[in-house]
């Protein structure tokens, strides 16, 4: 049962991303929203950690939040707008929000 993990907190002030990366299984997805998109900041250890995820794990980021923060998504990231975000949630068996 694949899970879409949804993060919204900055990985620079909080351990959610690190903990989440350890729990990801094959087929799971990771969606970055809000300040969690800072994980894609070039040159950061967080971006490096995301790059080390196996290819079986899909990585998504919310377009609006990237734009607002002037963050460019690396090729691995699938950028989604709100309609695609909703669709994405329905694609996975469940969504785990890291509140």
């Amino acid at each position: 049962m694949a899970t879409l993990h949804m993060l919204s907190h900055s990985p620079f002030s909080d351990s959610r991303l690190v903990s989440c990366l350890r729990l990801l299984g094959p087929g799971d997805g990771l969606l970055l929203t809000g300040d969690a998109t800072y994980a894609l900041q070039p040159g950061s250890a967080q971006l490096q950690a995301l790059g080390l995820m196996p290819d079986t794990i899909a990585l998504f980021a919310l377009e609006e939040d990237l734009q607002a923060r002037a963050i460019a998504a690396p090729p691995r990231v699938q950028v989604v707008d709100y309609p695609a975000f909703v669709e994405l949630c329905a694609t996975f068996a469940k969504v785990n929000s890291w509140l």
Binding site: M1, L23, G25, K94, N96, S97
Partner: peptide
């Protein structure tokens, strides 16, 4: 833990 998550219909993290 990864396997545990797979066993449940719904997961929430607080």
């Amino acid at each position: 833990l990864t396997a545990l998550l797979g066993q449940y219909d719904q997961v929430i993290t607080l």
